[in-house]
Write a protein that binds this DNA or RNA. Structure first.
Length: 561
RNA sequence: UGACCCAUGGUGUAAUGGCAACACAGCAGAUUUUGGUUCUGUUAUUCUAGGUUCGAGUCCUGGUGGGUCAACCA
């Protein structure tokens, strides 16, 4: 027992409103917490889903409960097994295990029987109106709807017609099954919502067994109920659906699951609509769902994001009912925080400038020990070759330096990272006046760190040995959209007009050769957050930090002063 | 113009009728073999008008502002 307040564990964060609801339920005697993550398999998961996943699985874990993975596959025209597989992979990658894997389509028979029950109770009817007629007779938000001429059909006729719908006797759109609730209700969703529509479409799991499919509102609450979900958590826009959710459960007298809503995640410069992301993929504006510029989980994975960093992000954005737009900088902070702890550093040069060390013996190769990760002593060190000719980054040399420029200048001295102090003696230019080479001398006594006379230099730069350097392809990328909110569209434009033409730039780069995991021709990516990651598909694992490029923004700021 | 949801620094999230705080971003400084990291300091917040109360960010009423809802999508 620790009585010293200074040594107490840091205070845990305050409960979010969902945790408060759950704790109140527990205090009231509820003994079980069971949540679910219910994606429709019609696209890939994105960072917004990550928030929902972390919430649902996190809540279940916190209260020793369970969380199901349920595919809401009630609309076969949009869905595919490709999406089912990707969703499972992404949830697993995020680090979560589902208690059970379920599909709304597993419950089609039960759902059908319940629909028959509603008909028998006089609470559902088959409507022959066209889609257009149904729409206009529903009224508007300010004017009440009018009843369908088919609303008062007998139970027997409804039963017969619904069975015929299932049997495939009607064409798509010829009939629907509707709940009989209230055509004048102030909530549009309660104006005799559609329960079943006819769709002669092959389903990715049930094949051609069914030609009628349940609607979301009819299926979702009942699926929750079947799985005995205690807390059905969804986003704010489903708020108006809750009365319907409760209505079906009440009328059917089944397990009372309850729905709670939270505000979905929005990120600056990011498109979060699955439908629009699908358009980007289909129009080939991006190379696929895992194009590293996409906000999808698989793209983040490919960019070198860790599951830990995504989870930390989900935790930091919080949970509330207020609409929010999170600064993309917070996501980037979360990766940097994690990568800074675990990533091994490597040296790289993007815009090479040749440097000849005139007093270093020709043909000699020396190996210099470099620490892999200054933040983590356990990550060890590596030997990097050093020779008479090296490359540094052009940005690390300035002929006429502004104030506070700490790197190489004519006559100035700088430290080669982990190596020697070098001094620029001569700037060699071509006929056009372009700098093509620097001739420097090195201080043989300055290897590694100290210098013989104790002098210190402020600048430390990256370098690669010219004869040993490995050429690699570097993808530099930025935000996909130029607009802070790509959904906020000006007249006459679409969201694709805001695509950032510089979101992806490919460049050659020179890397130090001592990377066991790096070979010539490898592709690398440069994050705007300040690090390199290898393309996930070619080389998962290794990470490269680069000062020069990574801090370009800071450098630009200094230059302005 | 109907019903419902929401309103706290630049951005998010706390404060559960009792000193408005934490994180990100910003700014300034220190440390540093990455202009990174780390550390320190600092700028900046309760939409509005009433009411209840000894006391209101919190409760009540009105207003204002934002969002959602009129797919046989989820």
């Amino acid at each position: 027992m620790n009585m010293n307040p200074e040594n107490e564990a840091p205070k845990e964060r305050a409960l979010n409103f969902l945790e408060e609801i759950i704790e109140a339920d527990i205090a009231r005697g509820q003994t079980r917490v069971h949540t679910r993550f219910p994606p429709e398999p019609n696209g890939y998961l994105h960072i917004g889903h990550a928030k929902s996943i972390c919430l649902n699985f996190g809540l279940a874990k916190r209260y020793n409960g369970l969380c199901n993975l349920r595919f809401d596959d009630t609309n076969p025209v949009k869905e595919d097994v490709e999406y089912v597989d990707s969703i499972k992979e992404d949830v697993r990658w995020l680090g979560f295990q589902w208690a059970g894997e379920y599909y709304a389509s597993d419950y089609f028979e039960q759902l059908y029987e319940w629909a028959v029950l509603l008909i028998n109770k006089g609470l559902a009817y088959v409507d022959d109106q066209t889609q257009e007629e149904i729409r206009t007779s529903r009224g508007t938000v300010t004017v009440p709807g009018t009843p369908s001429p088919w609303r008062e059909r007998s139970v027997e006729e409804n039963l017969r017609l619904f069975a015929a719908m299932r049997a495939g006797e009607f064409a798509d759109g010829a009939k629907v099954l509707r709940a009989k609730i209230d055509m004048g209700h102030s909530n549009m969703l309660m104006r005799d919502p559609i329960l079943y529509r006819i769709l002669h479409t092959e389903h990715h799991r049930t094949g051609d067994k069914w030609c009628i499919y349940p609607m979301y509102d009819y299926a979702h609450g009942e699926c929750d109920s079947i799985e005995r979900i205690t807390h059905s958590i969804c986003t704010l826009e489903f708020d108006v659906h809750r009365p319907l959710y409760d209505w079906f459960i009440e009328q059917l007298g089944i397990f009372p699951s309850h729905q709670y809503e939270f505000a979905r995640l929005n990120l600056t410069y990011t498109m979060m609509s699955k439908r629009k992301l699908l358009q980007l993929v289909q129009n080939k504006a991006v190379s696929g769902w895992d194009d590293p510029r996409m906000p999808t989980i698989c793209a983040l994975r490919r960019r070198g994001y860790t599951p830990e960093s995504v989870r930390a992000f989900a935790e930091r954005v919080g949970v509330a009912k207020r609409d929010n737009v999170i600064d993309l900088g917070l996501l980037e902070f979360c990766v940097r925080e994690d990568l800074n702890r675990i990533a091994e550093r490597r040296m790289a040069v993007v815009n090479p400038l040749k440097v000849v060390i005139t007093n270093f013996p020709e043909g000699k190769t020396e190996y210099i020990s470099c620490i892999n990760n200054p933040e983590n002593p356990d990550s060890g060190s590596r030997e990097v070759p050093f020779s008479r000719e090296i490359f540094i980054d052009r940005d690390d040399f300035m002929e006429i330096p502004p104030k506070k420029f700490f790197r190489l200048t004519p006559g100035g001295e700088v430290r080669l990272r982990y190596g020697y102090l070098i001094k620029c003696e001569e700037v060699v230019k071509d006929a056009a006046g372009e700098i093509i080479e620097l001739r420097c001398t090195y201080d043989p006594e300055s290897k590694g760190g100290s210098s013989s006379d104790g002098r210190k230099v402020k600048g430390v730069i990256h370098w690669v040995s010219a004869p040993h350097a490995i050429e690699a392809e570097l993808r530099l990328y930025d935000v996909l959209f130029t607009r802070e909110n790509p959904d906020d569209i000006e007249e006459g434009k679409t969201f694709t007009d805001y695509l950032n033409p510089e979101s992806l730039v490919t460049k050659k780069a020179l890397l130090e050769p001592a990377l066991a995991s790096v070979q010539a021709g490898d592709k690398f990516q440069f994050e705007r957050v300040g690090y390199f990651t290898p393309d996930y598909d070619s080389k998962p694992g290794a990470l490269v930090f680069n000062r020069t490029v990574g801090l370009k923004d800071s450098w630009a700021k200094i230059a302005e002063k």
